[in-house]
């Protein structure tokens, strides 16, 4: 759901850029406090994986495709604060190098996918972990968090289109939510599968969150 140039009005993209700029500055501060040097290669690798996976659009229905967002995946492995930095960096590279997402819409795309996507997923995941016990509970929480990250990001994107007078909310909301509810299923399946793989190669990976969610290194 990378928004290109000209979909958003200046008021909308400037406003969105201000919010995401502030959020990123705070995330950088939190990351500096918590990121362990042994986690640095994982930051690079998670970003590389998400970038690559985002290139692989999968068909969903009726001639529409979707691709991994990845914010839930990174948030489980490295915590939500570094995930915001990872997602924003990926969006910046996609915009500047590959013209995927407009430069004027970069702030809005960061707001939708790096800020809302990360916290919608991570918040849902943490909440459901409290309610659902066991490894199946963890998988369910992971799936639901992944779905929610795509779902809420698409809602915010619909509001941005509406604020910009590009498409009224009464049309933008059901259309965006409809497609992304389907894409979110793919998000959940991929995220659960990748975490299963990581647990196998890195058995000490503790996906039950500890304070701040920072739990993988080495």
């Amino acid at each position: 759901m990378h928004i290109p140039d000209h979909f958003l009005s200046p008021t909308t993209w400037i406003g969105a850029s201000a919010i995401s700029g502030g959020a990123l500055a705070y995330a950088a501060k939190k990351t500096q406090k918590k990121l362990d040097e042994r986690q640095v290669p994982w930051m690079g690798v998670m970003g590389a994986f998400i970038f690559a996976a985002q290139m692989v659009n999968f068909p969903v229905a009726g001639g529409t495709s979707g691709h991994l967002l990845g914010s839930m995946l990174a948030a489980v492995v490295l915590g939500p604060w570094p995930t915001m930095i990872i997602m924003a960096t990926i969006l910046g590279i996609q915009c500047l190098f590959f013209q995927d997402g407009g430069i004027t819409a970069l702030g809005a795309n960061i707001l939708n996918m790096a800020v809302v996507g990360t916290w919608a997923g991570y918040g849902t995941y943490r909440l459901l972990l409290l309610l659902l016990p066991g490894t199946w509970g963890q998988k369910a929480a992971l799936f639901a968090g992944s779905w929610m990250s795509v779902f809420l990001a698409s809602i915010v994107a619909a509001f941005e289109l509406a604020f910009s007078n590009t498409l009224p909310l009464s049309l933008a909301l059901p259309a965006m939510v409809g497609w992304h509810s389907l894409i979110g299923i793919g998000e959940g399946l991929i995220t659960v599968a990748v975490i299963q793989y990581l647990l196998r190669v890195k058995p000490e990976l503790n996906i039950a969150p500890i304070k701040g969610g920072m739990n993988v290194h080495g």
Partner: peptide, 20 residues
């Protein structure tokens, strides 16, 4: 793109990380 992302995020991470 994958290599650029890996490289840039490793640099960003190095700048931000505290010594373990």
């Amino acid at each position: 793109g994958t290599a650029i992302t890996f490289g840039l995020l490793t640099l960003v991470g190095k700048k931000m990380a505290r010594p373990s």
